[in-house]
Amino acid sequence: MNPLSLIVRTVCNVFAWFMVIFGAYIIVHGHLSPGGGFQGGAVVATFIAFLLVAHGGKRLLGWVKEGLFSAVESTGLLIFLGAGLFGISTTFFYNFLAKKGGLFGSVVPLGSNTGVLNSSGTIALMNLAVGLEVVAGLSLIIVYMFKGIRLELDREEESHDR
């Protein structure tokens, strides 16, 4: 994939970050508004697709570190599993943080309300963890599928040369 024109690249440089911010908003407000870790993670992973389309594959592969993505993905899954395991004294996936005060421990008023960000216990924590995992996983899929296409193109060029 070749880089697109200067106009496309400039617009992408500005607006790709808005996609990241919007996705982060969806992840962080997962327990208050429609959305959550999976959806917000998919939105944030669009960032890599934006960069790939606008800047071309060669430059993108110079920027991304696959090992970092893999580590972030594993970390997200481990935090998710750990948040489930910490409530094991009651039962697996028990919400041990809810309504205890402190981190994510506020009580929400019943019925329609304006939303308390510091509520819902492990649910918010798991949203963040799953968001991390989905971001890194989908980015890895995009990067590696592009690598597969590039390998194919290289092979075709070689066979044409022969």
Binding site: G30, H31, L32, S33, P34, G36, G84, F92, F93, N95, A98, K99, G105, S106, V107, V108, N113, G115, V116, S119, S120, G121, T122, I123, M126, N127, V130
Partner: peptide, 18 residues
């Protein structure tokens, strides 16, 4: 019970977290 406004999220991550 779970102090969460979004009922779908409470099911996804808590009641049926497995």
């Amino acid at each position: 019970e779970r102090a969460v406004n979004n009922v779908v999220t409470s099911i996804v991550f808590d009641y049926r977290g497995f």
